[in-house]
């Protein structure tokens, strides 16, 4: 009996391999009416894949609106996970058509990809326990216990500039930080306010945390497109301007960040010149 199983297993392996390559070549939009958009899958409020396979968050709302303006029906949008470290590669290889994934515009990245937008101005901020009144200004952070995600820009800002005397705990994800914040081993979680607001707005955290409201840095989120694709870039810019004008932008901000007490800001100037790029 045993030897006969080998061809079956080999066929299964071969089919898996074929299926994998088939997925790999299904990227670009030119072969059909599909559009592939890179988003975060793990940031509540910004870009999240829900357990039932749907997607939600501010980036997702922006991506859907832009794709709609580019002429794609909602069912033609294929969302693909774009982890921070993979974003440039995904665009360069053409695996995604554009990326809406809390993608801060900076000079290093601009050498690799082009950015449409910016569509959002985020600030590095802190999330503290709702009952904790000891942190009211950025100066209060020194000597306290902060938490952020391993290697992130926010974590590096804390280490190098904002609060060098603060203790910094780095974890693989913000959920671990929030566990520590909840049970008191950590005093404040720090990253972009949009991301913090998204976490604080989750049902099981509602009312437990508040945003500090410190504008520790400026992060302009852009939509990444392949380097040199100026046509797509200007189409996306047009779509973004329309989104702001017909107040879909404002609705998306309120729906995704509102419950956390996030003070919404006016949208940034879309298609702003390169000189406005913040550091980091």
């Amino acid at each position: 009996m045993k030897p006969r199983k080998v061809p079956a297993a080999a066929t299964a392996v071969l089919m898996l391999a074929l299926a994998a390559t088939a997925c790999g070549s299904g990227g670009g939009s030119d072969d059909g009416k599909k559009v592939t958009v890179g988003i975060k899958f793990d940031q509540p409020g910004v870009g999240l894949k829900t357990p039932d396979g749907d997607y939600e968050g501010f980036d997702v709302d922006v991506a859907r609106y832009v794709a709609g303006q580019l002429g794609y029906a909602p069912s033609d949008i294929v969302f693909k996970e774009a982890k921070s470290a993979d974003r440039e590669t995904l665009l360069q290889r053409g695996d995604v058509d554009f990326i809406v994934a809390s993608y801060s515009i900076n000079d290093e990245r601009r050498t690799k990809v082009d950015f449409a937008g910016p569509y959002f101005l985020a600030h590095q901020d802190v999330l503290v326990r709702a009952g904790d009144d000891s942190i009211t200004s950025p100066a209060d952070l020194n000597g306290r216990k902060l938490c952020s995600v391993t290697g992130s820009t926010s974590a590096q800002n804390v280490k190098n500039e904002l609060a060098p005397r603060a203790q910094l705990q780095e974890y693989g994800g913000y959920s671990e930080c929030l566990t520590g914040l909840e049970n008191g081993t950590i005093d404040a979680v720090t990253t972009d306010d949009a991301i913090l607001a998204g976490y604080a707005a989750q049902d099981h955290f509602k009312g437990k945390f508040r945003l500090g409201g410190f504008e520790l840095s400026d992060e302009l989120y852009g939509i990444g497109v392949k380097k040199g694709d100026t046509e797509l870039r200007s189409d996306i810019d047009t779509a973004l301007r329309k989104m702001v004008l017909d107040s879909a932008w404002q609705r998306a901000v309120e729906a995704n960040f509102g419950p956390a007490g996030y003070r919404s800001e006016p949208p940034p100037g879309i298609g702003a010149p390169a000189a406005e790029t913040p550091a980091g």
Binding site: A85, R109, G151, T153
Partner: peptide, 12 residues
């Protein structure tokens, strides 16, 4: 450190 550098440098 590798993650920090990848975050900053876009040189995967």
């Amino acid at each position: 450190l590798m993650r920090e550098m990848i975050e900053n440098e876009a040189q995967l």
